[in-house]
């Protein structure tokens, strides 16, 4: 990112791991709205973790989670998995937007999303599925 320097400290991947993003002037981004999103994501993590572990859900390059192998989820639970992924991605999109806004730079949203996408992947547990630079899925 050109104009800003963002440092991300991911405490607990997918659950809390949000961050301190600092722009030029010590901008604190841990706003109440971000805390609200963190709580929402954290409470969802227990349900999401088995899907990540089984490889049904993977970490995509664009900072979202994706149901990459629906066939790994029993049919009766596939609706719930879809719902979980959609809710997680709604939170993540809101989070990236919120961090950009909290920095006073809404136009940074795309870059923040990309940065987070890479960091989620870097911090993913061994055995989870992640997307490489060309969008191919690989097991970490």
């Amino acid at each position: 990112m050109n104009a800003i320097k963002i440092t991300l400290s991911l405490c607990l991947l997918l659950a809390v791991g949000l961050s301190q993003a600092q722009a030029q002037g010590n901008l604190e981004v841990n706003t109440p709205a971000i805390a609200q999103l963190q709580n929402s994501m954290q409470s969802r993590y227990l349900q999401l973790a088995p899907l990540l572990g089984s490889g049904a859900v993977g970490l995509a390059r664009d900072g979202t989670v994706q149901l990459r192998d629906p066939n790994a989820v029993p049919l009766a639970q596939r609706q719930a998995a879809n719902s979980l992924v959609a809710a997680e991605n709604a939170d993540r999109s809101a989070l990236y937007r919120e961090i950009a806004r909290a920095n006073g730079k809404p136009e940074w949203e795309g870059e923040i999303r990309a940065t987070f996408g890479q960091r989620w992947i870097d911090k993913a547990q061994s055995g989870w599925w992640v997307q490489d630079a060309r969008g191919n899925w690989m097991r970490k």
Partner: peptide, 11 residues
Amino acid sequence: GEFYWAPLYRA
């Protein structure tokens, strides 16, 4: 048995 046609499920 069961049938899934995203996003619908039927048993």
